[in-house]
Amino acid sequence: MQVDEATVRRIARLARIKITDEEAKGLEAELSGILDWVEQLSEVNTDGVEPMTRVVPISLKKRSDVVTDGEKADEIVANAPLSEDDYFVVPKVVE
């Protein structure tokens, strides 16, 4: 499967990754190669096979509706590059 440059740029933008023109060229070939490699899986006939979601027979673990966490705003914002009054502070984002 061939990935063109426009697709590379679109994927990069969606992933918020900045790429140079040179990198875009290289990524075209790399992404195409990855997709071709994965494409081989479609050689296997999977008609009527349910997608596998677990290797051991366990079910989704559930929690009861009890407040057990929170009240640690200082820890939550501890790693933030910028914070004030326990808010995260980020470059202005407004519609």
Partner: peptide, 13 residues
């Protein structure tokens, strides 16, 4: 996001 706290920054809760 709160946008009216600062001219250059947004505050996130």
């Amino acid at each position: 996001s709160i946008h009216d706290q600062h001219p250059e920054y947004s505050y996130v809760d």
